[in-house]
């Protein structure tokens, strides 16, 4: 199965740019927060150091949303049916769209990383720089695992492909919100508990998405991909 990650990513963005725009805005807010904390508050504000993780991971969740819209669109106009006829199986198809979603999330994460690293370097303190790197590590883990879970679960369960009460995005996005939203309040618990909870949520999301992907060709029927 040849890789068409870039093609699928481009197709997604040409289909819908609103969600990607919202993702960029939220990520920019996260970058602003970390830069402000890094440059003006220093390591004394460590309690709030992980708050930007929530914003940046949420941005990473929203930015690739057009990929899941593309999946529904391709299902409805028969592209998925045709891919199955070319010899692809359910897992091949899942992987293709997942790779496109992760690619877009990666693009945003690289932009976030550059901004955060520059801010950390300007701050000059080694402790702050290390905290910034920890923020990026946690953002990557939470962001990519939630993007994977949302994308794979939406493809696996057709009920999550629906767009409810005038919403512009498929229902599956709620799963990502459920994972990320609580992290906005975790700063009140303190740095270490917040770190542990975010790590746990990320691990859970990764495990669930990997399990769904591995089991997809055995347990998810092909007719779910037909128009």
């Amino acid at each position: 199965m040849p890789s068409n990650t870039l093609v699928f990513a481009k197709r997604s963005l040409s289909l819908s740019k609103i969600q990607a725009g919202v993702g960029l805005f939220i990520a920019a807010f996260g970058i602003f927060a970390i830069v402000a904390i890094t440059l003006f508050a220093g390591s004394s504000s460590a309690r709030f150091f992980l708050l930007p993780v929530s914003f940046m991971a949420f941005g990473m969740l929203m930015f690739p949303t057009p990929v899941i819209l593309l999946y529904v669109y391709d299902k409805n106009n028969g592209v998925l049916e045709y891919l199955l006829s070319l010899g692809w199986n359910q897992r091949d198809i899942f992987r293709q769209y997942l790779k496109a979603a992760l690619f877009l999330a990666l693009v945003l994460f690289i932009a976030e990383s550059i901004a955060v690293i520059i801010a950390g370097a300007i701050a000059g303190s080694q402790a702050v720089f290390l905290l910034d790197l920890l923020v990026l590590l946690l953002t990557a883990f939470l962001g990519f695992s939630v993007v994977s879970l949302v994308t794979v679960s939406m493809m696996a369960f057709s009920s999550l492909q629906k767009q409810r009460v005038g919403a512009n995005s498929p229902l599956a996005l709620v799963i990502g919100v459920v994972f990320i939203f609580p992290t906005f309040y975790l700063s009140f618990l303190g740095f270490i508990p917040e770190f542990i909870v975010e790590l746990s949520l990320s691990s859970l999301a990764s495990a669930l998405s990997a399990a769904l992907l591995i089991l997809s060709s055995r347990f998810i029927r092909r007719e779910k991909m037909l128009p």
Binding site: M1, P2, N4, R11, S14, N77, V79, Y82, S85, L86
Partner: peptide
């Protein structure tokens, strides 16, 4: 080779791009 009742062509692409998309596969 299977032709379904659905066109199964990416609507946002040109005819050439769509055919190239499939020829890459």
């Amino acid at each position: 080779s299977y032709l379904s009742q659905y066109n199964a062509m990416p609507e946002e692409m040109t005819v050439y791009e769509g055919l190239k998309f499939y020829s890459s596969m």
